[in-house]
Design a protein around this nucleic acid. Structure first.
Lengths: 206, 206, 206, 206
DNA sequence: CGTTAATCGAGACGGTACGTCCTGTCTTCGG
DNA sequence: CCGAAGACAGGACGTACCGTCTCGATTAACG
């Protein structure tokens, strides 16, 4: 018997290891069905298994619920954080904000709509969601800080508030068409400009 | 109810008229189950019928789908548009924006989360949703116009953009905890202030 | 049996009554599959439902287990008690005993083999089984009593013992081929003759 | 036993030899579960493997089906043929016949009930069954022949018929409670006496 | 003494069937 | 004709086993 404790990282689980092929086939099945327009709540575990050529047990062995499976599938997409030109602060913000509405592949938008209630409910999904969007927030923060440093932006910004001001309108408008009057392609620019300009009159330069 | 119903002067539907009691019992059953924390997609027509002491057919006779029933149930809540003091523009905006996060009864927040995907999908739900929120938007518009007229606000505002800037952060933060750093009770004030102030520096008075 | 006989005979159960057509279709499906040679433990509720054009719930609503369904199906066959000529006691016994091995339709023999363990285990099945065979036993008793009255048979017979002596060999030989040497078509006659004659030598007429 | 023994006696199969410990553990697991009252068709290979602390493959390597495994397990019990006193033919027969109902260990009776359908179906099981009971039949034949020789029994007996007359009632009554009226402890004696005496009246010494 | 090869435990694999639950429709009855 | 009650065909759920298939680790006999 070895002296290595149970929490040995290179200790191999006994028995036949789980097949990476099956795992990928399942994920692919989910994504392909979603991108074919199957409504997410219509997705049945049975149809996923059939499409993936896999037994239902193989799915349930890995994911305890359909929701977690869908989330994993979506998370596996690994959308890249958009890169910014780095010249104009306004242009960079427009680039980042536009990206929120344009993460196109696999019906991502439709998917996110369906995930929102899940996210709102489930603690772990909130963690997962943070991992997805924090990099985007951070990219935006960098642009804002650059603007503050260069003098393009005010130095006393409530940074987190500005972040949500920029992102939330895109999300809300995209998922629930919050205001029909805003259903125009230049929404990102209008939002960025409104955020930059502010609403208050400044009689004396501030 | 007396036998002299006389709701319709000329044509009376034959047979037994639909019972308003049943209708209300169904709506109440839905609302009570929701406020007890039953997830909206877990709600089954069967359980609703049982809770309401009603046959399933009585439900299907009135609503063609569970979604419409839920929407009707929610719509029946008739939340009042908040009233504003009308003195300070900022204070009025804070009042209106705070209200978004505080429409408390019947787990309204949880409910909305679940309805968002439905709204995103279904045209009619979008119409219904507009009817609910347009009065609130209009109330906000009035405040903004008042500020523009009084000189408190800039005169060239992109009004619709400002509206979404005010409301979207509250919705996003409440439904999906978009940014943990913003989970504070004074979110409404921070948002209003950020919107009013804007982000751009104004070296030359603009 | 599954009939939930209410205390009140003319009291009608509320709701839609169970369809006799479905019930018959299910029974027929079972019998047809059995007579096509499907092994009884291979019979799946799913295949029965499919064959009968019926939902699984419609089966489970009536029978709580596959076994009870099969028993009901078999019981519905209502094999007639064979009639006897009434002249010779020996011939009548041969007729009755032969019938045990010849209840032919629907693979009845194969079926009984599979039911035996169930019968051995389940109290209610024993009751059901008694209802099936008691009429046959009674017919045999009548023949024996007739013989005792007419003097063809001894008057002090252990009637029940004679009954089992006549029937058991047929059952055992048919279900488990208890003794290959007895696998002949005239088994019934040999059994009857051996029972009638007895084994003991009678030097002095008794 | 199902293990494919090598044709060549001194040729040793290469590789690791099969473990006799595992084999015994599997048999023991089956027997213990049966004697704990687990219904034979409820026995799962998986549970047997778990109980025996053995991989499923180790079972399938030795037995191609659960039925064969159970048969092997039962066969390993090797019940002894009862010995007879050898004085009175009647007493010896009672001893032998009683033994049929009293092969007690390991729920043998319950077990046999479950095996009957298998036996009825499977050719090999019939062979195996013959090997088990033929010695008992032979013991009974010896007693009967002794009686015929000594004049205690008639000389023209249909021996095989008498054998089944003696054994079948015990089997049938024990496995399916064929006749509730016969559920008495002295069944063996009643059967033996009835067989010895016969049913026919003998007015003229025959 | 190392190679070879079948075994071992463990457990994942693609499947099939289970028995339950729900959907949306359809009968039945009494009001 | 409406109402409750509940049966109907259908279909997905999540579980349990089936018999097969990898895994790494043993365990002999052969070279």
């Amino acid at each position: 018997m070895t002296s290595t404790a149970a929490a040995d990282p290179d200790k191999r689980a006994p028995g036949r290891p789980r097949s990476a092929r099956s795992e990928q086939a399942i994920i692919d099945a989910v994504l392909s069905m979603i991108s074919e327009g199957v409504a997410i709540e219509t997705l049945s575990v049975e149809s996923i298994a059939a499409r993936a050529g896999v037994g239902k047990a193989t799915i349930y062995r890995r994911w305890s619920s359909k929701e977690q499976l869908v989330v994993d599938a979506v998370a596996s997409l690994k959308l890249p954080v958009p890169e910014v030109a780095g010249e104009s602060v306004r242009d960079d913000l427009v680039t980042l904000v536009s990206a929120i509405a344009r993460n196109a592949p696999h019906n991502y938008g439709k998917l996110m709509n369906c995930l929102i209630p899940q996210i709102a409910r489930t603690q772990e999904l909130q963690h997962w969601y943070q991992q997805i969007i924090e990099p985007r927030r951070e990219a935006t923060r960098r642009v804002l800080r650059r603007g503050m440093a260069s003098g393009e932006l005010r130095a006393d910004l409530d940074l987190e508030a500005i972040l949500v001001l920029l992102a939330a309108p895109m999300i809300v408008q995209r998922t629930m068409r919050w205001n029909p009057a805003l259903d125009t392609p230049d929404l990102a620019e209008r939002v960025v400009d409104a955020v930059l300009a502010g609403a208050a009159a400044r009689p004396n330069g501030r």
